[in-house]
């Protein structure tokens, strides 16, 4: 599964994209796995209310299932316009 990061999430984790092998059932499970890896992930995911998630380029929720998902994106609230 590919994971992509944007804005300060990308900066805190230190990379724009990575591929992970995971058995995570939901987005929240995936976050738990990532946070357990290294401090920089824990720092990026410290406050989930400050984060948004997209599954295969569609906005989603942290309790959403990951079955069949190919790309997960984590980013702060968007500031377009």
């Amino acid at each position: 599964m590919d994971i992509v990061y944007f804005a300060w999430v990308r900066e805190r984790i230190g990379l724009p994209r990575e591929t992970v092998e995971t058995e995570a059932v939901t987005v929240a499970d995936l976050v738990t796995e990532l946070v357990a890896r290294e401090e920089r992930y824990a720092a990026a995911f410290a406050d989930l209310s400050a984060l948004r998630v997209a599954l295969d380029q569609e906005l989603s929720e942290f309790d959403a299932p990951l079955a069949g998902v190919r790309e997960v994106a984590f980013f702060p609230p968007m500031t377009g316009g």
Partner: peptide, 24 residues
């Protein structure tokens, strides 16, 4: 909708060298 639902993020770079993400 563009403000809050289009995947853009803005970063301000100051002449002083300081930089910061624009918060929603």
């Amino acid at each position: 909708y563009l403000k809050s639902r289009a995947p853009f993020w803005k970063k301000e770079i100051l002449h002083s060298g300081a930089a910061g993400w624009v918060q929603a």
